[in-house]
């Protein structure tokens, strides 16, 4: 089993604490089926031999949307060889919460300086403070990972307040309770069916993923109506494909959480 990155420096007053959903993502990415899928897809073997080859596809870009504590991106970065079969990959994150951006940066940096990670970690770029994938260049992402705010709620956090809640005010020098509640709500509140934020991400997905190499891992809970979500993705048509590749909390045929893999099934070579 690959080690879980440390998040002991993170203040969970305003940043989502790693929980069952985060750990399901770690387990799924490092499962033999997914690492085989990813290794085959991003195999670098034919580029290592001959430097003049035309087939050098370049280092893959891994993007995590909504990094929170950073535990998932740190895991993917630190275990790049084990999961993706190569260490020449780039990892990038976004989060709407600036405190989460700072926390994740530290989590990833700590994970890749662990002695065991030294052999096979990828190159961490940055975490940017952003709404989902809005500042990411079209078609540039090879692997996207998203653990969304998926809890059904009657309303979403009021974003008109976000600007003031996203920084520490000069007078107080620490965050307020109201501020922390707002920031934490952004990490879990999903609105109708818990799908309002995930639906926005799904709308952005085909524009952001590389049209041939792109793969996304998106976590859903049972209340998100995962079968309906999968049907919608199937209706995207070629080359997009979708499959459930990880689940947890199986009870009487109900998976409480599941992870969809959405990928472009273009034949690359």
């Amino acid at each position: 089993m690959l080690p879980t990155p440390s998040t002991s420096h993170v203040s969970f007053n305003n940043v989502y604490e790693p929980a069952e959903d985060s750990f399901l993502l770690l387990d799924t990415l490092s499962s033999s089926t997914e690492s085989n899928f990813l290794r085959t897809r991003f195999s670098n073997s034919h580029t290592g031999q001959n430097e003049s080859t035309e087939h050098n596809l370049g280092a893959p870009l891994i993007l995590e949307v909504g990094t929170g504590s950073g535990v998932v991106l740190a895991f993917a970065t630190a275990n790049a060889i084990a999961i993706f079969g190569r260490s020449d990959l780039l990892t990038l994150g976004t989060d709407i919460n600036s405190f989460a951006c700072q926390a994740s940066t530290k989590t990833v940096q700590t994970a890749i300086t662990e002695p065991l990670a030294h052999l096979g970690h990828g190159k961490f770029l940055d975490i940017v403070n952003a709404d989902l994938t809005t500042p990411i260049r079209s078609g540039s992402v090879d692997v996207l990972i998203f653990n969304p705010p998926y809890v059904p709620t009657s309303e979403l956090p009021d974003l008109t307040l976000h600007d003031t809640f996203n920084t520490i005010s000069l007078e107080t020098s620490s965050t307020t309770f109201e501020q922390d509640s707002h920031l934490l709500a952004l990490s879990y509140a999903g609105g109708v069916d818990g799908m309002e934020i995930t639906n926005r991400l799904l709308e952005q997905l085909r524009g952001i993923l590389h049209p041939e190499r792109g793969v996304a891992y998106i976590l859903l809970c049972a209340q998100n109506k995962p079968n309906e979500v999968k049907e919608r993705i199937k209706n995207w048509g070629q080359p997009w494909a979708v499959e459930t590749v990880g689940y947890s909390g199986k009870k009487g045929g109900w998976e409480r959480l599941q992870i969809l893999r959405i990928w472009s099934a273009c034949s690359i070579r």
Binding site: S98, Q102, D126, V128, N129, D131, L159, T160, H162
Partner: peptide, 17 residues
Amino acid sequence: YAVKEGIANFLLPSHLV
């Protein structure tokens, strides 16, 4: 877009979203 302490802020004011 401001960059502070190495972190870029791409959040837009609501009238620009």
